[in-house]
Every structure is written in structure tokens, then in C-alpha cells.
Simulated assay, not measured.
Amino acid sequence: MKTKLPNYRKGILRLVRWTSTVVYLFLAYQQAAFAQDGNAGINQATSQVKSYFDTGTNLMYAIGAIIGLVGAIKVYKKWNDGEHDTGKVASSWFGSCIFLVVVATVLKSFFGV
């Protein structure tokens, strides 16, 4: 069963509907205005990201070198202490260094920078 709304509630509902319609139309217009230069924005973002690749790969190589030095020191200490898991620790540190170098090289070659 439908109940009748008082007149002031009908007016409020009309105002809310009208306001939401105006806001929707305004947002649709703004989106259309900003979407006109989408290709130029995408091209600009692509060129900016590509400009960071050389710096990023050099940073990954530097981090790999630091990890390699720290790992070498840890493995040397374990070896001198006569611990039995030296080979496992050495392979994990060496593997992490190789992983960083391979990831940096593959990303650089994949994106053609």
C-alpha cells in the first residue's frame, strides 16, 4: 500500500533529483572536457616512465652489489666459524643477487629502453 507524502517531502525529493541531475551533467561535461587530450597524456606518461628506467636499473644493480657484499661477508663468517649450512646460505645470497640483476636486465630489454 502506497502512502502519500506530504507536499514538503515531494518538494525535497524533486530538489534532490534536480540537484543530482545537474551534478551528473556537470561531471559528464568535465569528464568530456578532460578526456579530449588523452593520447597526449598517455604519451607523456610513457616518456616519463621510460626516462626513469635507466636510473631504476642502475639502482637495482647497486642494491645487488651491496647485497652481494653483505652476503659474502656473512658467508665468510659462517665458513670461518665452521657452520654446516654455509653452502645453503651462500646459494641464497648469491641467488638474490642474480635475481636482482636478471630482473633489471629483463625489464630494461622488455620495455625497450
Score class of each variant (00 low, 15 high):
48 Q>D: 04
67 I>V: 13
52 Y>F: 10
28 A>F: 11
92 S>M: 12
9 R>F: 08
85 D>V: 03
103 V>A: 08
8 Y>A: 12
67 I>N: 10
73 I>C: 04
39 N>T: 11
63 I>M: 05
38 G>M: 07
6 P>G: 11
37 D>N: 05
85 D>Y: 01
74 K>T: 07
45 A>V: 01
90 A>K: 02
28 A>N: 13
108 K>P: 02
97 C>P: 12
25 L>I: 05
10 K>S: 03
57 T>P: 00
86 T>Q: 01
93 W>T: 05
30 Q>M: 14
108 K>Q: 09
72 A>K: 12
94 F>D: 12
85 D>R: 00
5 L>R: 02
1 M>T: 10
33 A>E: 13
83 E>F: 01
54 D>M: 09
61 Y>E: 05
52 Y>S: 05
42 I>W: 08
70 V>T: 08
94 F>M: 14
90 A>G: 03
56 G>K: 07
50 K>G: 05
103 V>H: 11
103 V>R: 11
78 K>E: 11
103 V>C: 07
71 G>N: 02
81 D>L: 01
74 K>Y: 10
28 A>L: 10
92 S>F: 04
47 S>P: 15
1 M>F: 06
103 V>T: 12
53 F>N: 15
100 L>I: 10
84 H>R: 09
97 C>Q: 14
99 F>P: 14
26 F>Q: 15
53 F>V: 15
33 A>S: 15
78 K>F: 04
93 W>M: 02
79 W>N: 08
13 L>T: 00
13 L>N: 00
96 S>A: 15
96 S>C: 14
